[in-house]
């Protein structure tokens, strides 16, 4: 798979603030790459550099093989950029706005209407086609921003917090659109604060902290790194206290926490086989309802990798 976005030793400084420091990573074609990081980590700066709207102080960034600094005009037709505060002409109709940008991207006039219609349909704006942009809800404006991004049929989409400020339903709808775009083979670089949505959407993530990349790779690997201990959640029919005491005497267990319905059991890091716990419980006559390995969330991975969870 060839590289769609390549960043090498990218640096950007605002006066005394290092927004981005020695950033290097690749995004492959067809990837949906999630860009994570706390506020001020440098996500937007990186995205704006990729979108040719900001010049880096040093380093290189390439989109589909074109340098964003030296060949911005070659990069621009290849990308669709949606800023965090997506701009729109408030006194235009949805269809007029999209037709205008289609014209700005030099979409031939005979194809223009069809392209606009396709984008409107893909982003679910059919009902709002002739609505004034000023009257659109935030969710609809985000969709409009997405539609504008797609107007030139870009190979790479750079989306800065596309779901921020949306209600859960609108967020799910935007996710579905992004999944559809991923299925169409577009490369998507997306930043978000809502980590759970990236978990289901992205196949690769990059985590920025203080302008530095602290992780870039698959989500599973990030989760594995965050897994520093194995914790089991055991539900018994009764006698949680007794079961806790019994297990502590069994050995091979780091810590036990007893709740009203759940018995929490922490095993040493690296334990792969925890069947001995179930065996011990059954052998001592406890009625086991469920044993579940506690899931490591992307939030945990994020906190672990950025050092905030320490």
């Amino acid at each position: 798979m060839s590289v769609a976005i390549s960043i090498r030793h990218l640096c950007k400084k605002y006066r005394n603030v290092n927004a981005v420091q020695d950033l290097s990573f690749d995004v492959h074609e067809g990837d949906i790459y999630g860009f994570l990081g706390p506020n001020g980590a440098g996500k937007t700066t990186t995205m704006r550099i990729l979108a040719t709207l900001l010049r880096p102080d040093s380093g290189e960034a390439h989109v589909m093989g074109h340098n964003v600094v030296t060949h911005p005009h070659a990069v621009r037709p290849l990308i669709g950029y949606m800023p965090d505060s997506s701009g729109a002409y408030r006194d235009m109709l949805v269809v007029e706005y999209l037709e205008f940008f289609a014209a700005a991207y030099r979409v031939p006039i005979d194809r223009r209407r069809r392209v606009v219609d396709d984008c409107i349909e893909l982003t679910g704006l059919v009902d709002k086609r002739d609505a004034l942009i000023e009257g659109l809800s935030r969710g609809m404006r985000q969709r409009l921003g997405l539609a504008r991004c797609l107007i030139n049929d870009p190979q790479v989409l750079i989306l800065d917090e596309p779901a921020s400020g949306l209600d859960p339903r609108a967020r799910i709808e935007v996710q579905e659109i992004l999944r559809a775009l991923g299925a169409m083979g577009k490369t998507v670089l997306i930043s978000s604060h809502i980590l759970s949505e990236l978990r289901t959407l992205c196949n690769t993530i990059g985590i920025l902290d203080g302008g530095k990349l602290v992780y870039s790779g698959s989500i599973d690997e990030a989760l594995a790194r965050a897994r520093t201990k194995l914790r089991l959640e055991i539900r018994l029919a009764d006698r949680h206290d007794e079961a806790g005491k019994m297990l502590m005497e069994t050995g091979g267990i780091v810590e036990i926490s007893v709740g009203e319905e759940i018995l929490g059991v922490e095993l040493p890091h690296g334990t792969a086989d925890f069947s001995f716990v179930a065996e011990a419980l059954v052998r001592n006559g406890f009625r086991v309802l469920t044993i579940k390995e506690e899931e490591v969330l992307l939030e945990d991975a994020f906190l672990h990798l950025t050092g905030a969870g320490a």
């Binding site: 979108a51 040719t52 709207l53 005009h73 621009r76 037709p77 990308i79 950029y81 800023p83 505060s85 997506s86 701009g87 729109a88 002409y89 408030r90 940008f101 700005a104 991207y105 030099r106 504008r148 030139n152």
Partner: peptide
């Protein structure tokens, strides 16, 4: 103000 200038210059203009 409307954050559209960047979008405009990002098009083929």
């Amino acid at each position: 103000d409307e954050n559209t200038l960047g979008l405009l210059l990002m098009a083929d203009l």
